[in-house]
Design a protein around this nucleic acid. Structure first.
Length: 319
DNA sequence: AAACAGCTCAACCGCAGACGG
DNA sequence: CCCGTCTGCGGTTGAGCTGTT
């Protein structure tokens, strides 16, 4: 009785991903696109549940992900959106190209929350922390007031600098609330320019990246993380770093450890998907060992396959 | 140098909603 | 409308790292 588990858990691996697992997953997704996550581990030869594969891909392996700390602009946008949307991280993330809900959620819990509290603002209500301001010394009240004004002023200053940023935020909030379709959002996407979000093209975590093969912003991870977070940035267990280096993308530097300072100026433009974009993908596809795998010369198209196509490829591969 | 505390973030869990039969 | 399946989401956990004593 009860709910069926998402997968047969017996014999499935858990915990940090290894380089080999990452390779398998990347190769599989690049070759087939995303579909039917439950089938992915079986077809890709992974001892993981589909859920785990999906998370690994969307939160870490997707090539269009930005890495590193959120910029001030992004942080402000997150705060604004959170004030309106609450903990709807995926909605918030959908307006920050290259950022995942998990990343934003983590950043909120570890950084922004503290920042707001320090400023005397309740991170939940976005209002001054003290419930009864009269209990508070006048100096503290002033401090809160100042901080709040400061907070508002920084945002409004930005708004002054980028006049349509507020409009944009309003529009995306309205859009999120009304659950408008993504198309209408894309129509307004150009407004993102005003808040210095680099990639204004369609962004959806459930798609293989449909990025414009131009520059995208790849932020360096925190230097601390480069040395810490062993499961990810260096080659202990979950590292994909070496793998990416081995792939030898032209003009692409994956050597996180060399990025150094990451605070604000830490973001670096890396020409990740240049004119040879598809050649790079081809390179990967060519290196897929399993010759039985279907090869799509334009993996980016994979995401645009219809549900029918996707079911048919699944069947083909299964067969 | 060792022990401990605090921090970060990838990964997991369980629930809810979407969807198709 | 119901039921089963699948995916997405948000909350939580815990391993590993850093800083402090």
């Amino acid at each position: 009785m009860g709910r069926q588990p998402c997968c047969e858990k017996v014999g499935l691996k858990k915990g940090p991903w290894t380089t080999e697992e990452d390779e398998k997953l990347i190769k599989f997704i690049l070759t087939h696109g995303q579909c039917c996550w439950r089938a992915v581990p079986k077809l890709a030869g992974l001892l993981r549940c589909g859920k785990s594969c999906r998370l690994r891909w969307t939160n870490y392996l997707r090539p269009d992900l930005k890495r590193g700390l959120l910029s001030e602009q992004e942080e402000k946008l997150v705060i604004d959106l959170h004030a309106q949307l609450g903990n709807r991280w995926s909605k918030i993330a959908s307006h920050l190209p290259g950022r995942t809900d998990n990343e934003i959620k983590n950043h909120w819990n570890t950084h922004i929350k503290k920042k707001l509290k320090k400023m005397g603002i309740d991170p939940v209500t976005h209002k001054p922390l003290v419930s009864n301001p009269s209990d508070q010394p006048q100096s503290l009240q002033n401090q809160h007031q100042q901080k709040e004004e400061q907070s508002c002023s920084t945002i409004s200053a930005d708004a002054a600098k980028t006049p349509s940023a507020d409009d944009f935020i309003d529009s995306v909030i309205t859009e999120a609330k009304e659950d408008e379709d993504r198309t209408s959002y894309m129509a307004n996407a150009s407004m993102l320019d005003t808040i210095e979000v680099t990639d204004i093209n369609s962004f959806c975590t459930d798609e293989v990246p449909l990025i414009d093969p131009n520059d995208i912003l790849v932020a360096c991870p925190p230097s601390s993380s480069a040395s810490s977070s062993s499961s990810s940035y260096n080659n202990n267990g979950g590292s994909s770093n070496n793998f990416f280096q081995e792939l030898q993308f032209p003009d692409l530097d994956w050597s996180y450890g060399e990025f150094g300072n990451h605070s604000d100026g830490g973001n670096q433009h890396i020409k990740m998907w240049d004119d040879d974009y598809f050649i790079n993908w081809d390179f990967l596809v060519d290196n897929v060992d399993d010759k039985t795998l279907m090869v799509d010369p334009h993996p980016a198209n994979s995401c645009q396959r219809s549900a029918l196509d996707q079911s048919s490829w699944t069947n083909e591969v299964v067969q």
